[in-house]
Design a protein around this nucleic acid. Structure first.
Lengths: 160, 160
DNA sequence: AGTTATTACGTAATTAGTTACATATTAACC
DNA sequence: GGTTAATATGTAACTAATTACGTAATAACT
């Protein structure tokens, strides 16, 4: 009977936000309770660098889909935690390249089994709720890319 | 080939966040371009009050799923915009009841067709991407409610 | 009725991001 | 080669939320 549960499509935004916030909290809790000195929000940067090697700020920003000041801030924290080092690109002095330190690489090994457990839990949740969710979410992103919300809105509100 | 697209289940969080941020931006843009003096983030409070009538801070917080300081802040803005009025509950002086002003109610009438257009666009997007998304997302929330992420994680990482 | 616990609200500090703007370097073009 | 445009980074101010904490009012218990 809760009115907020009967929003239909209008509930999409809230629903996405609640779930995403929830998962982030869960991530934070996992690292905290395992006593691992790692912040959930570092994950995308860390994971990308581990898999792709040294990368510039802008390239990380583009790949991960957050603003470059966000990357700078996360990088600053990870540098304090000794996970990351920075150097200037020799051939283009504008660029600052971020790379895992050797300590960062060992941290990656420590984290791998945790990620694996998280993967399994998420997969279990996805199976329980409908295993097509990932595909459908990515379909949603693609649909938005093909014709953005704004364009669709105009098409529908414009007098035919 | 983008590494961030091949995270599998680990992509769930990022994917949810990107989409939710995107939709919020789209909402903001719609109101702005239509020249309507209304903020997208007011929607849940506004919509709830319009449908359910006067409601206390805590009840709104619970219904919408956001902290009570967030409600207070949003309410403050909506009061400045003349959409909301507050009064103390007579039988329980701790409670502050929020209610739409008559201007707020007329604003609701102005907004209804906009919401209708948004509903249609979202429904179209959902159909394009897999019309079960809403059900599956709510299934995901239910699954998490039934047995939280943390409990599931322990079950999987605990030595059998 | 008096003590204790709970609930409701408010404020302050913090968090995690954003946009807007400034500067340095490089690329493009004539 | 000099001027103009574009790119990469950095900083500042802002935004929208959170958690932590404090106080007033009510409820529960004896």
């Amino acid at each position: 009977m809760d009115i907020m549960e009967n929003l239909g499509p209008l509930a999409l935004g809230s629903s996405l936000k609640r779930l995403s916030d929830q998962l982030m909290q869960d991530g934070i809790r996992v690292y905290r309770e395992l006593g691992i000195d790692f912040e959930a929000k570092w994950f995308p940067v860390f994971y990308y660098l581990r898999n792709e090697g040294p990368t510039t700020v802008t390239e990380l920003s583009r790949a991960i889909g957050v603003s470059h000041p966000a990357i700078i801030q996360i990088a600053r924290e990870m540098i304090s935690a000794n996970l990351l080092a920075v150097y200037r690109d020799v051939s283009d002095k504008r660029k600052r390249v971020l790379a895992l330190t050797s300590y960062g690489k060992s941290k990656a090994q420590e984290l791998e089994p945790v990620w694996q457990a998280i993967r399994i839990v998420l997969q279990e949740l996805l199976n329980e709720a409908g295993s097509e969710i990932l595909n459908e979410l990515s379909g949603l992103e693609k649909a938005l890319q093909k014709r953005g919300f704004h364009q669709r809105f105009l098409d529908h509100s414009g007098k035919s």
